[in-house]
Nucleic acid binder design. Structure first.
Lengths: 219, 219
DNA sequence: TTAAAAATTTAAGACATTTTTAAGATATGT
DNA sequence: ACATATCTTAAAAATGTCTTAAATTTTTAA
């Protein structure tokens, strides 16, 4: 994801990256970047000289939201500022005007590190529901959910397929290890329990929608 | 590990890093760095202007041997060369003369990426549990714990991954040297014994949480 | 409007995993 | 080789989770 307010530079970066085999998403402000949903972002290129909110805040929120490497593009030469960005979770920076090859090299190094050393932070989000695959924990509205193994796997499946309908047989297939027995009420009971726990964290939202005769969906 | 042929700079780096909480190992050539055995290296600082073998070769071999982030220190401003180093697996570089804060920031950013084994300090803490790696001792609430070898390693693993769930198979893999046999009760018994010993030091806290069907976590 | 089908919820019993204890097996140090 | 500590195994008790069943509510379609 490219976050850069200058239209021309944004377009230029898009062309550079796509001609090097990457798929890109463009945003034109940090806040817009934070709002991006449902895209599989693996790295963020962030122009830190943005109007509006401070760069610090934006890095923190981007990190929290997308949890991927962030490379800062900046004209700032001041080292103190650099150090600050680093300590906030920025993973690297390039100073403008930057050399294309160097930028590509840094992007490559960051992406390589990810897949290479299994840092693949397996944290998923949907609205204010967060799934942490590594720790087998989930939270809603910042509150830890106390889920059993099946409940966790079921919620995880729904989050992984948020906005898509999960059929009952697909759920039985992936959460339980057998094909469904259609007259089985087990899944319904588990959904009921998850809903109850989500309600305790955030009473105002109905996360799981029932698709009659088909299955369930996060909406 | 610091790999730098200039004695003075090597010593200076050692002082800088150790005064910032890191433990260091010094080597004075790339080949010497490759030969280092038995040390728990988590990052390599490499001066690329070394006599003898080419930098390219050395990075590749260091990476192969130690499999950790490599930060290049170099006076080269030529971008093409930088790109080359990146594509060989270097994770970052600083140009000499470098700013100490920037170097520390880049080291921090690289280590932060790796979970658990960030700053290598021989003493680990979680709440009032303290692990002393050098002496193979542990304490809780200031009282020495009398732990067996497996108990110590198990508690150490939990402390290293505090707030994260350790799966049973991961524990068997790292504390015992074989994959788990799922019906095995050994781990449970060891957890039980550790809990009992922790309880004797501090009866009010339940340190080790059971993640049903998954494993354990310090919480 | 009404009957049938599907889904929700609750509670209880079935099932599975974990905890604890104790004893026998194995490893370690003198 | 002996004494000691540690580890593993086994079994029962405790606890957590899953499924089933039944009553209730919601939705669909005739």
């Amino acid at each position: 994801m490219i976050i850069e307010d200058d239209n021309e530079i944004n377009r230029m970066l898009k062309i550079l990256l796509e001609s090097n085999g990457y798929t890109t998403s463009s945003a034109y402000s940090g806040t817009e970047g934070i709002l991006v949903h449902g895209k599989d972002i693996s790295l963020i290129l962030l122009d830190i000289m943005l109007p509006g909110r401070s760069g610090d805040e934006i890095i923190r929120e981007l990190k929290e939201k997308h949890n991927v490497p962030v490379i800062i593009m900046s004209a700032i030469h001041d080292i103190d500022k650099k150090v600050n960005l680093f300590s906030l979770g920025a993973d690297d920076y390039v100073t403008k005007p930057f050399n294309n090859d160097e930028l590509l090299a840094r992007i490559g190094a960051r992406l390589r590190g990810k897949t290479g050393q299994g840092i693949v932070s397996s944290s998923l989000k949907y609205r204010d529901i967060e799934i942490d695959n590594d720790n087998f924990t989930a939270s809603c509205a910042g509150i830890k959910l106390d889920l059993s193994k099946h409940e966790f796997n079921l919620l995880k499946l729904l989050v992984e397929n948020s906005e898509k309908t999960c059929t009952k047989s697909m759920i039985y297939d992936r959460v339980w290890d057998y094909e469904n027995s259609a007259d089985d009420n087990t899944l319904n009971v588990h959904i009921s329990k998850i809903r109850k726990k989500l309600r305790e964290c955030n009473p105002d939202t109905e996360y799981i929608k029932t698709i009659w005769g088909i299955g369930y969906r996060l909406t």
